[in-house]
Structure formats: C-alpha cells, structure tokens
C-alpha cells in the first residue's frame, strides 16, 4: 500500500531532516520502500520549508506526494499552503502552539502537540522536530518506534543523542496518551 506523508514548516524547524529520518526509517529499518524529496522551490518563498515521503511495500513509481495521507505542519503558513494536499479523511498533525486550524480541518483527523514548548522544556527548541517525530510515530504507526529511533540515532551527532532521545520519547509518550484519551 502506498502511503504519502508531507511535512511543512519554516526553515530551521528541521522539516527536511524530519522527512529524511522518516523515509530512511521506513526503508532501511522497517524494510519497506520509500522515496524522500524536498521542495527546493519553497526555499525561495520566505523561509518556507517542506519535504515529502512516500512509503510502500512495493517499488515506488511516482516519487512525490499527490494526495497526502498524513500532513504534519509546524507553521501557520505551511498549514495554509499545504492543507489542500491532504486527502479527505487524512491525518493532520499540528504544532498546536503555532498552528490554528480553521473550519476546513473538520474533514480530517487532527492531532496536536506543543512540540516546541516540549523541546524548550527538554533544553533546546531545535529538537521540536524530533518531538514531532515521536508524536507522529505514536499516533500513526506508519513507521515502527524502533525504526524511527534507529534512523534518528544514525542522523544525529552523538553528543546530542541524549537530548534527542528525551525529545523523541516525550513526543511518543504524549502521542500514546492522546490516543488513549481519544479511544
């Protein structure tokens, strides 16, 4: 089955890294196929940043997102720009302190997390994307927890691993809590 994920936010939020880590987790550690692309043209639009991941059990043909199953947005502008890409009934994950969804969000399953605030509590807002990845992993199950963590471990310099692990688990645990509450 083909799964399409789109990440959006601002430059510096680690949007590209989040996409790369997710795609690599699926391909290398979960043994699936994946394609990771980034929209370079977005960089010209005043700091917008977006990346795309396609995951499948089979060889992937068209490598970009056509109708996203999952949209993860960490800025209001990303929400405004990319919401149209999310298919009806798809999952919308938002940085709830930074994104205020409008009435269009009712077509989707919405999950929110104050990822930046959590990251600041851990010690550095720079790990907000890792908090988000933990959250994404918990609420969607698209990528296994082990695979996602291995992929983060591979990407992050050793001296920052501890902080990133905290961030990942914070997001993951929060996601599980949200799931339990909503069930």
């Amino acid at each position: 089955m083909r799964i399409e994920i789109k990440f959006g936010g601002l430059g510096g939020q680690g949007i590209i890294t989040a996409g790369y880590i997710t795609a690599k987790a699926a391909a290398i550690y979960d043994g699936k196929e994946s394609a990771f692309t980034q929209d370079y043209s977005a960089e010209a639009r005043g700091g917008a940043s977006t990346s795309e991941v396609v995951i499948s059990d089979e060889k992937i043909n068209y490598p970009q997102v056509l109708h996203a199953d999952y949209l993860i947005v960490m800025s209001q502008s990303a929400y405004n720009d990319y919401l149209y890409k999310l298919k009806k009934g798809g999952v919308l994950i938002i940085e709830e302190d930074l994104v205020k969804p409008d009435e269009r969000a009712k077509d989707f399953k919405v999950y929110g997390i104050p990822a930046t605030r959590f990251a600041e509590e851990i010690g550095n807002p720079i790990v907000a994307n890792i908090v988000m990845l933990g959250f994404f992993t918990a609420v969607t199950g698209v990528v296994s927890k082990e695979a996602m963590w291995k992929s983060i471990e591979e990407r992050i310099p050793k001296r920052f691993l501890e902080m990133n692990q905290k961030a990942f688990l914070k997001g993951y645990d929060y996601g599980q809590k949200i799931l339990q509450e909503s069930s």
Binding site: Y20, A23, K24, I28, E33, S34, F36, T37, Q38, P63
Partner: peptide, 9 residues
C-alpha cells in the same frame, strides 16, 4: 533534478 535530489533505498 528530481533523481539527483531524491533519496531512495
């Protein structure tokens, strides 16, 4: 340009 920058296994 697509192939150059896209990542795959």
């Amino acid at each position: 340009g697509m192939l150059a920058h896209m990542y795959e296994k």
